[in-house]
Design a protein around this nucleic acid. Structure first.
Lengths: 132, 132
DNA sequence: TACATAACGTTATATTATAACAATATACGA
DNA sequence: TCGTATATTGTTATAATATAACGTTATGTA
């Protein structure tokens, strides 16, 4: 079976909303904002998010329990993600660095285990916050 | 002021319990298990965990909302963590690889932002689970 | 058309985590 | 050793995040 190409109604609504934000959104904040579009229950949002994360349109920022649209157009599956997170203003940026992704994609630990997926979150202060 | 050297009663109880487990534990599972030692409320566990994470004795596995004792004896602060997570049996191993930590510790993104902290989680199947 | 699969809608509930307040213990300089 | 700042504790209530379980409806495709 092939990976589905188009999104369902709820998936479109959620993705649309998350893409318009320039920052990670919490699931319940998404819920409140798409209620006018007919999504009434948390599960409707979580199910859409699950699918969107699965196909790589959305990434979850694990340390923040928040969801952000993928900025990496060729990201078909969320198997290699890296983010920069400012601990001052909470701005999150997806890192798109081919050296980094090559390095981590090929990483093997001492046990010889090879990984199919990784998520990396960097923390620090962005320029603005550093100069405060 | 100097970083405190010894742990409080609750902190010791929680750390002790987490160290004895060879796997990440959930906060409420810790709670149930330390109730005989007098910790009755979630906050008592979360506060101890917060402190222990802060001083590097315990790490949080963000993708699992679980807590594991640090295996890296020289880890004074949790500013550079990497884990291997088996998606089959959920076994989690802390990765202690100096090349990796050097690479990530020196990583700078295109904006020139430098990071004070990172957390990396690798996912895959361990040998046992791969051979099933 | 028929069938499998994905998506939907709904209610209830589980799980994870923090707010707010008052009390007690501890470290440490004057 | 007194005073005081800070850390820790205890407690109740509640917020925030996420899933179970059920039945129904839509969609893709042989």
């Amino acid at each position: 079976m092939q990976k589905q190409q188009h999104l369902s109604k709820n998936q479109k609504i959620v993705l649309d909303h998350v893409e318009k934000a320039n920052q990670p959104l919490k699931a319940y904040s998404i819920l409140y904002n798409v209620q006018k579009k007919g999504l009434k229950a948390p599960l409707q949002v979580y199910r859409a998010l699950d699918k969107l994360v699965e196909i790589g349109k959305i990434h979850k920022i694990e340390s923040r329990n928040a969801f952000v649209a993928c900025k990496n157009s060729n990201c078909v599956v969320s198997n290699a993600t890296a983010f920069s997170i400012c601990e001052g203003c909470e701005k999150v940026t997806e890192i798109n660095n081919s050296k980094l992704s090559k390095y981590l994609g090929n990483f093997e630990d001492s046990s010889g285990m090879k990984y199919s997926k990784y998520n990396l979150e960097f923390f620090g202060l962005c320029k603005k916050c550093k100069n405060k």
